[in-house]
């Protein structure tokens, strides 16, 4: 971890990685779209609407994964004062928010024809909406203070506090009666999805994960540059 704490050392590792994750993202999402939209069969109950799963489910996984990463990065920022931990969390927040919006919107578009409703206040949907508010709250808090370190600390604490929501989202469908069905892929007795539908789903998930890391590296580089700009300007004022 300490090796990555220095921004310049991080850039030395991240910059060569960027083209690889970018290509991996493009290739997997392309393959996933072909498999999901053309190759994958209809569902025996849901017909063609099952194709919404290939964006909805990976987006939902990423919404949770990005938040978990953000909480861990915030913890390293709070405890060990890693400057990069905070920047990684700050760079992740908009990406996670985008995945959450995609998850909610595609879920709505899937729910209307199948369940008969765009939205219901069941435990799963409500907890994912809270996740979106946590992302938005984090982004608002980071820039809310004149003194950057205060905003950093407040936002990092919010990210950590909000982490309790992650297991709640995951297990909401098991703990309570919900309109949303229980987990299909990540469950104790193996996936309940036919391989012809599971593969496109997993490939899309790889693509979304690679996309996250590609955009994260771009945003982190941008944040590091912004931090250097701030330092130079402070130096000019005091010098």
């Amino acid at each position: 971890m300490h090796r990555f704490a220095n921004p310049n050392q991080f850039l030395r590792i991240a910059n060569p990685v960027l083209p690889w994750v970018a290509w991996l993202a493009a290739l997997s999402i392309g393959t996933g779209l072909y498999l999901g939209l053309i190759q994958a069969p209809q569902d025996y109950q849901q017909g063609e609407t099952v194709r919404i799963m290939y964006v909805h489910v990976p987006a939902a996984w990423m919404a949770l994964f990005v938040y978990a990463s953000m909480a861990i990065a915030s913890a390293t920022a709070l405890i060990w004062r890693h400057p990069l931990g905070f920047l990684a969390a700050k760079a992740s927040a908009p990406i996670g928010a985008c995945f959450t919006v995609i998850c909610l919107a595609t879920g709505s578009l899937w729910g209307k024809p199948m369940w008969g409703t765009w939205w219901e206040w069941d435990a799963r949907m409500t907890s994912v909406l809270i996740l979106l508010f946590l992302y938005i709250g984090y982004m608002a808090l980071v820039d809310a203070f004149d003194e950057p370190t205060r905003g950093q600390r407040a936002a990092s604490i919010l990210a950590l506090v909000g982490a309790v929501n992650v297991p709640i989202i995951k297990f909401s469908v098991d703990w309570w009666n919900t309109l949303h069905q229980p987990a299909s892929v990540v469950r104790l007795d193996g996936p309940a999805i036919h391989p012809s539908m599971l593969w496109p789903l997993l490939i899309m998930a790889v693509g979304f994960t690679a996309f996250y890391f590609a955009v994260l590296i771009v945003r982190l580089r941008s944040e590091i540059a912004a931090a250097k700009i701030r330092n130079i300007r402070i130096g000019q004022v005091h010098g």
Binding site: L33, L37, E48, T49, R51, I52, V55, H56, A59, P94, I95, C98, V101, I102, A105, T106, L109, W110, K112, P113, F211, A214, V215, V218, R219, R221, S222, A225
Partner: peptide, 24 residues
């Protein structure tokens, strides 16, 4: 239902990528 889901996801992800590259 299906096409708006895909198009919306594409618009959101491409916009995010574009804005991130612009900022950088």
């Amino acid at each position: 239902y299906i096409w708006p889901a895909y198009i919306l996801a594409a618009i959101i992800l491409v916009t995010l990528l574009g804005l991130s590259l612009r900022d950088l």
